[in-house]
């Protein structure tokens, strides 16, 4: 009795002539459908790996000659003058801006995103869940240039007095020191980025929270937990790996976001003094590259920008790897 899927063929009894029943996995390899599907899936997997490897290789190959000619320290210099006879370029400023803006975005987006997800899965009345979730997902569908425009035209005038207020009252704190940059500060970009990544955090967190086993939740409630205690003891621990991977995906987006940031940032003039302030301007890796792509006039200069791109690539890679590790370890604890 062979079946359509071929899997249950392994359940067959020994045949009358004494042959052993066929093994499940062997049996499945013989069929065209299985082979086609398995092949297609493997091919897709290989394509992704090859693509990423090729992109990495491309970046390295293009970046190395420029890096060899670099007369400044690539990681600690704040100069960016990749053209000309004596190229000198360093990424310190982009690294700081990119990481700082993304961190601000994460600090704002993750708590809010998790809150939205908890509301949608635990608190909201059933009739509201569907429409509200769709609305949040809709945020993810807004093109990033629209966020840029909105940030510049609508949100910035609203934010500016707030920023001035913070600078006036909390300016003694180095991270919030006034710098004289009028708009497009790291903090402002962080806020806009946080809105852009909010749907990612929310959508993924919602998925995992919704899958918390009912037994866990009812168990907690039966032991006398309040709604909040139930969430804390059953929903949150269950969903933690999902929330972490959501945050990391969001961070990846924030690190690499280009067009909205290019639109909003205030670049710093050469030789402006270093400050830790989040109210300073600065360019991110992606915005710097995008803004200057039109003037890649020689391979050395292009190479310098590609080297900056390589750092972003590696940065994103590290972030994702950390996420993987954290999730794996969490799994080991929770299961």
């Amino acid at each position: 009795m062979s079946t359509v899927t071929g899997v249950s063929a392994a359940d067959e009894l020994p045949q009358p002539d004494g042959k052993k029943p066929r093994q499940g996995d062997r049996a499945s390899t013989g069929r065209i459908g299985d082979r086609l599907f398995g092949g297609a899936a493997t091919l897709s997997g290989v394509i992704v790996i090859v693509l990423v490897t090729l992109i990495g290789a491309f970046l390295v190959v293009q970046a190395v000659p420029a890096l060899m000619n670099n007369s400044a320290s690539f990681f600690t210099s704040r100069v960016w003058a990749p053209g000309g006879e004596q190229p000198a370029f360093g990424i310190l400023e982009f690294l700081w801006t990119t990481v700082a803006a993304s961190t601000v975005a994460m600090l704002l987006a993750v708590p809010v995103g998790v809150g939205v997800a908890l509301f949608l899965t635990q608190y909201a009345p059933t009739w509201l869940r569907g429409p509200a979730a769709t609305l949040v997902d809709l945020l993810a569908a807004v093109p990033s240039i629209v966020y840029g425009l909105w940030g510049l035209v609508t949100f910035f005038p609203v934010w500016k007095p707030v920023q001035n207020g913070i600078e006036d009252t909390l300016g003694w704190f180095p991270l919030l020191a006034p710098t004289g940059i009028s708009g497009g500060t790291i903090f402002f970009i962080g806020i806009v980025l946080s809105i852009m990544v909010l749907p990612i955090v929310t959508a993924l967190s919602r998925e995992v929270f919704a899958q918390t086993p009912t037994a866990h939740k009812e168990g907690a409630l039966a032991l006398g937990a309040t709604q909040w205690e139930m969430i804390r003891t059953s929903v949150l621990p269950f969903g933690r790996p999902g929330v972490i991977s959501a945050a990391m995906l969001a961070l990846g987006r924030a690190l690499g976001e280009t067009i909205a940031v290019t639109f909003l940032v205030s670049a710093l003039a050469d030789g402006s003094s270093w400050t830790w302030s989040l109210f300073n301007g600065g360019e991110t890796f992606a915005s710097k590259i995008a803004n200057n792509a039109a003037e890649f006039s020689n391979p050395g200069k292009t190479g310098a920008y590609i080297a900056a791109g390589l750092v972003l690539f590696v940065l994103t890679f590290i972030v994702n790897s950390i996420a993987r590790v954290v999730i794996e370890r969490r799994k080991a604890f929770t299961e």
Partner: peptide, 24 residues
Amino acid sequence: GKKWTGKGEGKEKSAGVATATKGQ
């Protein structure tokens, strides 16, 4: 040169500097 060497706050392209000036 093509790259700005003075002081100030950089904005993207002509539209960027014009909009920023308009708003400040």
